[in-house]
Nucleic acid binder design. Sequence first.
DNA 1: TCGATCATGTAACCGGTTACATGATTGT
DNA 2: ACAATCATGTAACCGGTTACATGATCGA
Lengths: 186, 186
Amino acid sequence: MQKENRTTYIILGFLNHEDMTGYELKKRIDLTLGHFWVSSFGQIYPTLHQLVEQDMVIARSEVTEQHREKISYSITEKGKQSLKHWVSQPVANEVVKYEILLKLFFGSVIDAGKNRNTISDFKDRYVQKSLELDNFEHQLKMVLDDDPNHLYYLLTVLFGKKVYQAYSEWADEAMQLLNDVAGKED
Amino acid sequence: MQKENRTTYIILGFLNHEDMTGYELKKRIDLTLGHFWVSSFGQIYPTLHQLVEQDMVIARSEVTEQHREKISYSITEKGKQSLKHWVSQPVANEVVKYEILLKLFFGSVIDAGKNRNTISDFKDRYVQKSLELDNFEHQLKMVLDDDPNHLYYLLTVLFGKKVYQAYSEWADEAMQLLNDVAGKED
DNA sequence: TCGATCATGTAACCGGTTACATGATTGT
DNA sequence: ACAATCATGTAACCGGTTACATGATCGA
């Protein structure tokens, strides 16, 4: 129920897999969770400092072979426990906020043609995203047995595909309805 | 692109339809947008004050026949223009945040059975919500021609139904996959 | 009488975003 | 020489949530 800082657990989740720097964490988050999570340094670095203070992770300064200074973080036993606990907790009833629904809800203040365009753009965007997910799916299926994580990654990809497919079908129906009912002013 | 205070436009959208108090606005938002928006007085009242200052709405103190003091708000021409402009603007590429995907992504830290339960709970919740939307749909279809808004309300309801249906189908597939691949420890 | 509802508001907090600042290294 | 990338951070801001405060009226 209570709002929890989810960035905390995303970081713990990735560090549970392997040690990383803040910079690497961001890249990894954007690559793998980009479809349903956005990250920023302004959130990641402070959260890492906080996790160090809570003994959830340990920071270790390094200089790479490329003569770059970096701070590598690794998860502690306490961090692992915290991650496990969070994953086990049932997900709260979440209200997912769609800006397009908000605008469409008040769509009658503009003409039906404009609303159809909004819906059409929406559809195009998610058809494109669905293609990106196809790649992910294909890659993951090839390495499914290499790592127990891959199955779970795949589940999130399949979720995205299903939902994007639903968007697309809805968009078609919605445009049809707008055409049938809301006049033909264009 | 820039984050806009969407509560502003929700309020303008409802006031464009009829005059209301802050209290009534909250009730209306929860009833009609509850599936994809949550509201709070802590956001509504300050936003109303702000809108008054910007000449987007006008406040009018009243005493009802029930001897209740209340402040009724009505939208101004400037407010209507602002609403129309916002509705016309294309929706930004939005990243929808699903807590369940976040947890599932790191699902390998707990056993597959627990993850199946998480998914099962998720499905049940949205099957239930889908039934609620069936009622909305039925009611809206009966009064579709009474008000041009009703068509747009219906579109948002149909969106919800499609997406909830997708959740349900995904949940079945995901549970099946977890069963097939991730061992049968329960 | 007492809980539910009507009605309005404030203050503290929090997660997250954006913009800014700095500086090194790598590849063209 | 210069852009891209690596790498770490801070400060200001903002939308929104939660908790708290107050008080009236309505219905059982």
